[in-house]
Design a protein around this nucleic acid. Structure first.
Ligand code: SF4
Ligand code: SF4
Lengths: 157, 157
DNA sequence: GTAATGACAGACCAAAATGGTCTGCGATAA
DNA sequence: TTATCGCAGACCATTTTGGTCTGTCATTAC
């Protein structure tokens, strides 16, 4: 729950790579998949979605592949997320998938939750794939999160 | 993806109700379930988890039920989330569920993603169930997102 | 012209997560 | 002593997810 899917993970890895290869450079699915040990077929699907949503440009030919269609700075994590998985909503009532929530009539927490959601979306929008490949210091926002809430937030190494 | 589960939704509804009934008040599963049209059995399970994690107090007896164990202000959405669904992580590598990520060796986006995750967790921690039932204006934290970045976030000092 | 490359498309499947049900036991106050 | 209400866990159906397989279309290097 609250987890990014593997497909999004793949998309971010690929886009980060392409961002480093700089605009104009062309990468093909097979190479990227091999580099990151991603199943080629599934990465292909992901790339197609990114292409359809206009984030990357396809070159359908031998020696072809994909290249960034817009500058890396303008490709936010949120855009990638939406491109690959569709509309995002932390509560089902807010992204159109579940307009038949049984609790809706009595629900008195919808408004604050939507606000929370907007904040989260804002974070996702504020992080671009350009920043993905850069050092932590460059990132805007907060904290190193060490021992934030008693959970295993990360394992260095 | 990135969606709260129904169980969490149920937990938040119940806790919000109990918060309004004020500390000390006792609510039982059957009543809450009826009020919100929640399957009683599943709400029961949810409440048990909340109880085990110390957020609410159970009164096992006729006329019994549950009451808040700590002030509503101190029950964050994140705590509820962890109580009901376990550790939270937006990337599988960061919550212990997937320590065998095939991409890990070549992964160059882990650090920024963990940072993003910490920001999100921070928001979840900053929102208490007390605020859930209140008007938007009362919400702490940044609400319109206009000045979200470029400054350290300080909520709930 | 044609063959090799690489994108495009979609059916298909297995595993996991999720949402929900059922059954029985244990505590306690009326 | 019994009705109420929490405790516990097995169990199941549906959905989501991750992944596979099969084949077609566009381009260009040769
Ligand atoms: S319970 Fe409220 S917040 Fe949750 S999905 Fe239903 S309407 Fe939305
Ligand atoms: S690809 Fe990187 S960020 Fe994603 S799960 Fe694996 S290690 Fe974590």
């Amino acid at each position: 729950m609250l987890k990014l899917t593997k497909k999004v993970d793949y998309a971010l890895l690929a886009l980060n790579l392409m961002a480093r290869n700089e605009e104009g450079g062309i990468s093909n699915v097979r190479d990227i998949a091999a580099l990151y040990s991603i199943p080629p077929e599934i990465l292909a699907k992901v790339m197609q979605k990114l292409s359809k949503s206009g984030l990357i440009q396809s070159h359908n030919a031998p020696k072809g592949g994909y290249s960034l269609k817009v500058p890396a700075e303008e490709i936010s994590v949120l855009k990638v997320l939406v491109a690959v998985e569709g509309p995002v909503g932390i509560v089902s009532c807010s992204d159109g998938t579940d307009r038949t929530c049984q609790q809706r009539d009595q629900c008195d927490i919808r408004s604050p939750l939507e606000r929370l959601q907007n904040n989260i979306l804002w974070f996702l929008e504020a992080l671009s794939i350009r920043e993905l490949g850069q050092e932590p210091a460059v990132l805007k926002g907060v904290t190193d999160g060490s021992s934030l809430f008693g959970q295993p937030l990360h394992h260095k190494g």
